[in-house]
Design a protein around this nucleic acid. Structure first.
Lengths: 336, 336
DNA sequence: GTGAATCTTGGGAGCGCTCCCATTTTGCGG
DNA sequence: CCGCAAAATGGGAGCGCTCCCAAGATTCAC
């Protein structure tokens, strides 16, 4: 490994061995037209014999295409990225990129330095396009996206910015379903645990909650805020319970916090779903593992990543795709 | 975005505007010696005025350096990659790469097709080096690693292959500590739940278990095997308990399975740690969230990623680093 | 058999940058 | 004021590929 720097064969060498011109070899390589069957075969044999692999860098320089796109995750990576959410997005995106023969550059844009590198990556055409995830209000990466000459697809709409292309999940609709389900189960005092308020997902879920409650002719309770972690859910539920001791239902903006809420309810001696019914959001593993297993809003995370990548692939190829909002649906388990 | 394809300025244009030769401009750009202070300043001004960003592809072609490395995750991505483990490795690696100004290419090598693409990426020098994670015995990516002319660092030693450079975690030592801890707590019939047997981590943890038990003059119990998931831990513990109803301690090869074991014990009416003490491995979030919180072996995952990346950066720069085994340590919580 | 239309073919000019090298300029001790 | 070493300078040859284009080879209808 790494020793013998015996140069890789070049296309000229392939051409020479096959007894054709470099142009013909290139055409055969990319199986373009205007090459006779014999020459094509000769080139293919030479390629095999020399174990030739085209140099992508040279190709990129000539074609002005990089063969790679970036997946950018904004915000404090250590905390945010630990969420299995992103792993699933990546898997979904990878699948679509693989089909288009594009590589995936992963960029964690948390520090100023990493953001500067990202900006250069885009400006220097180090990638053919980018997918942006977890962009928050007034996020500095928005500026980079705005100035990008390379197409950019957003995963989730960033608050306060009209993204030209995005794939989102029906957060409001899912939240509304969740709360309607709670109400249908006869709950009348339903509280909410929100996530970080500078994300659109968080806001949309709160909006869905309010709509459902108001449509039922009830009064929304002021929400408690967490940071999407389990302990913050525990704390939020405790606060909620202090304010509204008669609360009989809770909708949490994600499963982690819902699990935290479950813990707090157990600590407070309330039964679930007997005294208080709980619904989460995400449908991650933790929802099934929790005690009791959580009713939650399933969101198609894999599809989110997949569709973002497809959209970007289309954009790179010059298409004009439409933004997408993917449906969510409720998964009923024993917490309600 | 993507419209106005107004070409980025080139170095020639910068040179012309600054009234110097392209060579001088290049030297100034890379602040190399042999440029007078005035010309250097003139070039810098021209760069600023034209908003010039060097084309990395052209630079790569000339220097034969890509400015990027690959992080390869072998195996069935959907299942494996969902583990927050990899997210932490990535964060750790990213930090080190950012310092070295290298980009991260993420490759999920699950399918034949993705493996072929990976092989080409390395052969075509699409990256300057690679980090390989989750390589199993007889894993097809091993072949790719062997043939790579670009340096490769392994994360964890692949079984049955003498990796020239790797960063690993002291799996055997950690397991041994875990079991010694159980024995020190007075447990005498300690069982083990192993992970997938074709990973070295899994084997090493089992080895550590056996050593500790034998050193204490006791008899190791035949292990049960899971697949690192929570449900498989539940099943494994049930099987273990059937075979050894008097079992008073369990060591699970990871936290997920330990959490599953906890569930099974609860179902069987055994108290933890009263009747059976449980130790996990990983120290992921789930260890703290579990009921009761799990005693577990902490492994420095962030450091693992970080050290892999540092090692690769060194290798790319021509250094001859030494492989590394990072220490693990026991974190005691209420499950023991 | 002939001219037009269509294919093939290879030469050559890039893509934008780095770096070697021959040439010119500068600095400085004697 | 001269000679020589050291620094500065710009020309030019790549890096390995794509693609335009002019020239030559084929085909085919009439």
């Amino acid at each position: 490994m790494t020793d013998v720097p015996r140069r890789q064969p070049t296309l000229d060498e392939v051409a020479e061995r096959a007894g054709v011109s470099r142009s013909a070899a290139s055409r055969a390589l990319n199986n373009a037209p205007h090459v006779s069957a014999e020459k094509r075969a000769a080139v293919q044999r030479a390629i095999r014999e020399l174990d030739y692999v085209p140099n992508t860098t040279a190709r990129s320089l000539a074609t002005r295409q990089r063969g790679a796109v970036a997946l950018v995750i904004s915000g404090e990576a250590p905390s945010i990225f630990a969420d299995p959410f992103f792993a699933k997005v990546i898997v979904g995106a990878s699948a679509a990129l693989e089909e288009a023969d594009l590589h995936l550059m992963l960029c964690l844009a948390a520090s100023d330095r990493s953001r500067r590198r990202l900006a250069e990556l885009l400006r220097a055409r180090g990638v053919d396009g980018a997918m942006l995830m977890a962009v928050r209000e007034n996020d500095p990466v928005l500026q980079i996206a705005r100035e990008s000459e390379v197409p950019v697809v957003f995963g989730g709409r960033p608050p306060g910015f009209e993204a030209p292309w995005y794939v989102d999940v029906d957060n409001a609709g899912g939240a509304r379903q969740a709360v309607e389900h709670l109400l249908a189960r006869g709950r009348r005092r339903v509280g909410m645990i929100c996530g970080l308020p500078d994300t659109e997902a968080s806001r949309a879920r709160h909006r869905g909650y309010r709509e459902a409650v108001i449509l039922a002719g009830l009064q929304p309770l002021p929400p408690e805020y967490g940071d999407f972690t389990e302990p913050s859910g525990t704390a939020a539920l405790a606060a909620l319970l202090t304010r509204h001791p008669d609360m009989d239902g809770v909708f949490a903006a994600n499963d982690n916090m819902a699990a935290g809420a479950l813990r707090a309810l157990r600590g407070a001696g309330r039964t679930v779903p007997g005294d208080v019914a709980v619904v989460g959001f995400d449908d991650l593993d933790i929802a099934q593992i929790a005690e009791p297993p959580l009713t939650t809003v399933h969101q198609p995370i894999h599809a989110l990543g997949n569709e973002m990548a497809r959209m970007l692939v289309g954009l790179v190829a010059g298409a004009e795709p439409n933004s997408l909002i993917l449906p969510t649906h409720l998964v009923t388990r024993s917490s309600t």
